[in-house]
Design a protein around this nucleic acid. Structure first.
Length: 840
DNA sequence: GCAAGGTC
């Protein structure tokens, strides 16, 4: 059997392209975690069997939120690698790609050599020419570049988390109306916010100044013209008045010079992500986040090329004719395309090649109906821009007439377009026609009137998103793929608000933060913080410095900054004090504290929490849903009054919680129990493990899962519990997933009993039916039975979000888990030694 | 919980 070669790309689409090229389209494809394309071919002069597959971005990162994916992709790679003698890495040719190379090597087990060989393919585009060239010149993966990425990751995380935790606990523990769950800090998001606040400060500290401008008018060959002053404007009214008198006394304008110049407005270079985002925000009214979503959808549907790229230069092999051909039948601009094809088109401007992906171009034709309004606008722009790059420059003549009167110079300008060029497909960039009559040098013309325009200088407006993107790009903040994320972050955290014209106006919170950094340590919010980190890790990438030494050194510097910041926090706090109200003045009185037995206040703005003024303690509550007092019941463990949290909507569950237990789960191992489960759709938890009563294993409390749990969830490992306030639409819901079961409607009361069903171990329910609607014989109302085994009860049950409802012995996690050390995924989370914060 | 970087 021929030896096997495994090739791995960064994403499925690249794997497909590579396999198609190398196999000449003759391959077999099978599904897996990601598709695998197989074919026979030659490798290093020998016949081999190829398998081409891909990862989906990083494999090892974000362990905490996407744990399953890692396992899933990793298993896939290790399976496919079995029996392969060579591994060829086709990851993107940038640092991140190099880093993923080593993740793949680890998954495939190729690092343990034994004759197996690892190759790195270096390619700058996914074209036949490039792929073949890369195959002929395979190299080794670059460990230094990969280490540089590890270094950046570690630095960003440690710095970000330390500052964020400190700020969040300090300010959210002190003020009640900050309106942000987390007061975050990051080396990209904070300078991004810095730009917005900088502009705000420019605006608020702006001092307007009055100015005056002199404008003579003439009437010539039927045109009335307003002439511009060579001095533009003066900041002194008396002096302007004096010049007006000079001109008035003269009364006649002499034409000093008539000049005509050929001007050219260059066609655009290829479209990259940043430029697309800028146009989307300024012209289409889409924020960067939405614009990227729309572009991604267009890409996955095959309408446009890959939308995340820095390059504005088309690769030399770019198939212009083919792309034009795809657009020729388009009803909107098909005619224009036809013309380009028949009349010929100029070679596009060179642009910059960042070595990543080609510029964003259309791939196939579409109509508005196929895409929907928003996606269509983005697609239309991409097509117009592409056609613009293949159109001639716009040529126009600019005529300037210079005049003199009373010793002062004035002028007027005319513009006439000779060749529209690309502006006919991008009409918003068109040159304005300005018609002026003919003048000859030496000509004298009477002044019809003289005006002085009075005005005052104005502050700049707030930053537009588009301007912010430019600033970020210029200062190296974020990448094509992440710029939109940072902007979205500062909006979501309520540091800025997007207002009319997509201008970013900082909030009191955003302003206080940046002004605080400015007075404690301005470095923290300057863009240089990013370039400093980039510069340090570049040393690692180039092999000029040792990875761990660099990380250690940089962390040491930030450690100093951090401790200084902590020491000086009162300077920032002074700004917060002026803007926000302390916890003691916020919120409304809700429930009693178990420690001091005084009432605590509930603060419903983000993050939702209770504040005990006497103990000076805060207790987070679930971030969603409404909170109220639960019948003045108390928790048997700590004496805190229980709360009832109700999720919005007709199917929103309601549940009891003890504020103290919710923040400080009383039973060991409860986090594991919860962390191991799929919590999608379940209650989103705030600080701590977030243990509501429906997860509490207290043996006797009437609200614990032991008392309220009825039976095992048919969908997951959870337990179905009785919703305490669901009357008259009584129901059970799962304490882990979305599963919902409606119980007999119209019952007065449904409650759990201490008894268990001998058949299936479910909790026996006691149902008190309504007299009028009781299904029981002789008007009886009380019925006791097992929901699964009692035919009457089972017949009255209705399932929602559940495929089947069946008997399963036991009641899920509620009971019988004691002694288990937790099974499956949750308990085996890998510990990344880098993610420890002991040192901070 | 918290960052920023890939990709979906």
């Amino acid at each position: 059997m021929a030896p096997k070669v495994l090739m791995v790309a960064e994403k499925p689409s690249i794997a497909l392209s590579i396999a198609s090229v190398l196999s000449g389209g003759r391959m077999e494809t099978r599904r897996g975690s990601t598709e695998v394309h197989e074919f026979d071919g030659m490798f290093l002069g020998f016949p081999v069997h190829y398998k081409v597959t891909s990862v989906i971005g990083h494999v090892f990162r974000q362990l905490l939120t996407c744990f399953w994916r890692k396992a899933h992709i990793c298993r896939h790679l290790s399976q496919e690698a079995r029996g392969c003698g060579h591994l060829v890495l086709w990851l993107d040719c940038d640092r991140e790609g190099e880093n993923i190379c080593f993740e793949v090597i680890e998954c495939t087990g190729f690092q343990s050599k034994d004759g197996k060989k690892v190759h790195r393919a270096r390619f700058s585009s996914v074209t036949e020419k490039d792929i073949v060239k890369a195959m002929d010149s395979l190299v080794e993966p670059n460990k230094n570049e990969a280490l540089a990425v590890d270094a950046r990751q570690e630095i960003d995380l440690k710095v970000g988390v330390s500052f964020t935790r400190f700020q969040t606990s300090y300010f959210n523990g002190k003020y009640g109306n900050l309106d942000s769950r987390v007061i975050s800090y990051g080396p990209c998001q904070t300078p991004t916010l810095g730009f917005c606040v900088q502009r705000h400060l420019q605006i608020t500290t702006f001092k307007p100044e009055k100015f005056w401008a002199l404008h003579p008018y003439i009437i010539h060959k039927g045109y009335e013209l307003k002439l511009d002053w060579e001095r533009h404007r003066l900041f002194d009214s008396d002096v302007t008045e004096m010049f007006r008198n000079f001109v008035k006394e003269d009364g006649v304008l002499k034409v000093i010079e008539v000049s005509e110049k050929q001007e050219s407005k260059g066609r655009p270079t290829g479209l990259n992500t940043v430029n697309l985002l800028k146009v989307a925000s300024s012209a289409l009214g889409f924020g960067p986040q939405l614009a990227m979503q729309l572009a991604e959808r267009l890409y996955t549907q095959g309408f446009i090329s890959y939308p995340r790229t820095e390059s504005t230069a088309y690769p030399s092999s770019f198939d212009y004719k083919g792309t034009l051909g795809a657009l020729v039948h388009n009803p909107v601009w098909g005619g224009y395309v036809q013309q380009l094809l028949s009349d010929g088109y100029p070679k596009p401007r060179s642009g910059t090649d960042a070595g990543d992906h080609p510029p964003i171009t259309p791939i196939r034709s579409a109509t508005e109906d196929m895409l929907g309004n928003d996606a269509w606008k983005v697609y239309q722009y991409i097509c117009q821009h592409f056609l613009g790059t293949l159109s001639p420059d716009c040529k126009y003549t600019r005529t300037k007439i210079e005049f003199e009167a009373g010793g002062e110079s004035f002028h007027c300008v005319g513009q006439h377009v000779m060749i529209k060029g690309f502006t006919s497909i991008m009409p918003w960039l068109a040159i304005n026609e300005i018609n002026i009559p003919q003048f000859t040098q030496g000509q004298k013309i009477d002044i019809s009137r003289i005006e002085i325009d009075e005005g005052s200088t104005r502050p700049p407006d707030y930053l537009t998103e588009s301007e912010l993107i430019s600033l970020m790009e210029k200062n190296g903040i974020g990448t094509d793929a992440s710029i939109s994320v940072h902007i979205n972050n500062i909006c979501e955290r309520n540091y800025v608000q997007v207002q009319a014209g997509r201008r970013l106006v900082p909030t009191a919170l955003g302003i206080s933060l940046i002004r605080g950094y400015q007075c404690i340590d301005p470095d923290l919010c300057l863009p240089d913080i990013r370039s400093f980190i980039e510069h340090q890790i570049a040393l690692v990438a180039k092999g000029q410095a040792d990875h761990s030494l660099v990380v250690e050194h940089v962390i040491e510097q930030f450690k100093r900054k951090f401790s200084y910041f902590v020491k000086q926090i009162e300077n920032m706090d002074a700004l917060f004090e002026a803007e926000f109200s302390p916890l003691s003045d916020s919120g409304r009185v809700l429930s009693k504290c178990g420690k001091c037995l005084r009432y605590m206040k509930h603060i419903s703005t983000q993050p939702s929490r209770l504040y005990c003024g006497a103990c000076e303690e805060i207790y987070y509550t679930p971030p969603k849903g409404t909170i109220k007092l639960y019948k003045e019941l108390t928790c048997p463990l700590d004496n805190f009054e229980l709360l009832l949290c109700s999720m919005p909507g007709p199917e929103g569950k309601s549940f009891a919680l003890c504020p103290y237990c919710y923040n400080n789960p009383p039973f060991e191992g409860i986090e594991k129990l919860f962390g191991a489960s799929n919590t999608s759709g379940a209650v989103k938890l705030g600080k701590g493990a977030g243990m509501p009563c429906f997860l509490c294993p207290h043996p006797t409390c009437q609200h614990s899962v032991i008392s309220q749990g009825v039976c095992a969830c048919p969908e997951c490992d959870g337990t179905l519990v009785l919703d305490p306030i669901s009357a008259p639409k009584w129901r059970l819901y799962c304490n882990m997933c979305n599963c919902l079961i409606s119980l007999p409607e119209g019952a007065h009361r449904i409650s759990t009993t201490k008894d268990r069903c001998p058949e299936c171990d479910s909790t026996i329910l006691e149902v008190d039916f309504n007299k009028k609607t009781t299904p029981l014989k002789d008007g009886a109302t009380l019925h006791i039975g097992c929901i699964l085994c009692d035919e009457l009860l089972l017949s009255l049950v209705e399932m929602k979000h559940v495929k089947s409802f069946y008997r399963r012995r036991g009641r899920g996690r509620g009971r019988g888990r004691r002694g288990h050390s937790g099974r499956g995924r949750g308990s085996k989370k890998q510990q990344d030694p880098k993610m420890s914060f002991r040192d901070f």
